[in-house]
Amino acid sequence: MSRVSVKSLRKAFGPAEVLVGIDLEVDDAEILAVLGPSGCGKTTLLRIIAGFLDPDAGLVALDGATVADGHSSVPAWRRRVGYVPQEGALFPHLDVRGNILFGLPRRERTYERLAEMLRLAELPQRVASAYPRELSGGQQQRVALARALAPEPRVVLLDEPFSSLDAALRLSAGREVSSVLRSAGTTAVLVTHDQGEALSLADRVAVMDDGLIRQVDTPLQLYGAPVDQRIGRFVGDANLLTAKLEGDVARCALGPVALRAQPPSADGALVTLLVRPEQLRVTAAPECGQARVEEVVFYGPHALVRLALDDGTGLQARVKPADVPAVGDRVTVEVTGISGVFA
């Protein structure tokens, strides 16, 4: 299908600068998630790409053709950009058939096209005559996706599409939507504030904060090697440990930790290590432990254990059900890997 490129995009509402120079490239047939806390400007970015808003400066190009440059802009109805808003926003006065075929020219609103779109969205044929209020939340979401895909857009934009669904449904709806997008081979931009959603559904994730893109990477890279502490904490639970650089190891309260890459500072400097809870190994040691178990939250497949080191540092560790300690136990803590070293 198509590529999206955004260069030095700026947008202000009155005195409030929402976007302060966004650069973003989305490749053909890629699903890119824009992840950021609410109010970071990600919906504004999406609305500018869709053509509902005009940027103050910068450039938006679809397939190399400029559609907005701060002076002129191609109107939304000529951009061929599909849009799936929160809660689907199906037309309540039209049935599923009317919704899905809405964007097609009259002569293309055929039964075959409808059946094809229903099949693509993994919806049963009988829902064609149902009205939006008769559908479940997940079904509405898939109809909205089918409606956006029917006119064969160059890119589909999804704005927090799962935020209104309950937790259980959100997981399955997310997987279904991403599989529909992949089988349609569509380029897609998904905006979300949910880390799990972004990491599990997208090919790449762009972390956005304060009107800027901070990092664009694959989910694995983003989680395992964030470019700064803030992003590291934002994309997942994190322990921050102060350490001293000594050659190819960093010495912290839990002992020496091997560095994987070139450290950011010279030998002897103090750095901060970012350690994910699952990178800590907790072992019961009634006699010689260095930490005390403060709290245990059991989730089933794993448990989160809150620990207090003897020097007062608080830590979080993720352990297997078989290894869950009791509150008050003495334990030793070992670092099995790190997700970042920051000066």
Partner: peptide
């Protein structure tokens, strides 16, 4: 909801068509 009008525009409807169809 105004978002319904946005959706219609993204599906290729001109403003007059949005008014008439949505």
């Amino acid at each position: 909801q105004p978002v319904l009008e946005d959706v219609a525009r993204s599906l290729g409807s001109r403003p007059a068509a949005v008014l008439a169809r949505v």
